[in-house]
């Protein structure tokens, strides 16, 4: 890979100087490393690519205009991708308000890992992408990115309990999806 030999730092520096070649290198590098973030936060491949392009434009703009050097590029990029993915479906997040009468059971679905381990990556993405927007985002943030419910609530500007309820709902839907795919060997 070219970016490995040149070094990410020099690529970023050249991107700051509007070097189109280096911008392409950075784009490809980011795609390889972080496209899975877009896949997890979007509904399908096309949306993921669109979100990725939007996020990369934001990143290029930041690199060119901002004087500060990006210390942790992948972390920075992942955050931009995640927020862009969340914003992409923001219209569908806000109208639904949390109803406190909703009751969710305690998290009994500890064996999701085991169920997913038996699947290929593409299948896992397909199952996650089949979830509704809210559930998919909360599931990705909580289970894969490691955010707490408080952080998710702050990020999505929703109630913390609503976040828990969405996670519960996501796992319940995953169970249905797994059964539909014929995976019955674990206890969802």
């Amino acid at each position: 890979m070219i970016y490995r030999t040149m070094g990410l730092r020099s690529v970023l520096l050249n991107c700051k100087n509007n070097s189109l070649k280096d911008q392409k290198i950075l784009y490809e590098y980011s795609f390889t490393e972080l496209f899975h973030v877009c896949l997890r936060y979007t509904q399908n491949q096309q949306d993921a690519e669109e979100v990725f392009n939007l996020a990369m434009l934001k990143i290029f703009q930041y690199i060119i205009t901002d004087k500060n050097e990006i210390q942790n590029y992948l972390g920075f990029c992942a955050r931009i991708l995640r927020l862009t993915g969340i914003d992409y479906y923001k219209g569908s997040l806000s109208p639904v308000l949390y109803n406190s009468s909703l009751v969710y059971e305690n998290d009994t679905y500890n064996s999701v890992d085991q169920a997913f381990e038996a699947l290929e990556v593409e299948d896992i993405f397909a199952i996650i992408q089949s979830l509704p927007h809210k559930e998919r985002i909360v599931f990705s943030m909580f289970e894969i990115d490691g955010f707490s419910h408080r952080e998710i609530a702050l990020e999505l500007e929703i109630n913390e309990n609503y976040s828990k309820w969405l996670l519960h709902n996501a796992k319940k839907l995953l169970k249905v999806k797994m059964i539909q795919k014929g995976i019955k060997s674990y206890n969802l």
Binding site: T32, F35, H36, R40, E49, D113, E117, V121, I124, F125
Partner: peptide, 20 residues
């Protein structure tokens, strides 16, 4: 056996030139 999280995080597709 790696967990499904590792699978997801280590998923490294190749960029399609058309995207660029």
């Amino acid at each position: 056996m790696s967990s499904y999280k590792d699978k997801l995080l280590n998923y490294k597709p190749t960029a399609d030139p058309r995207l660029w």
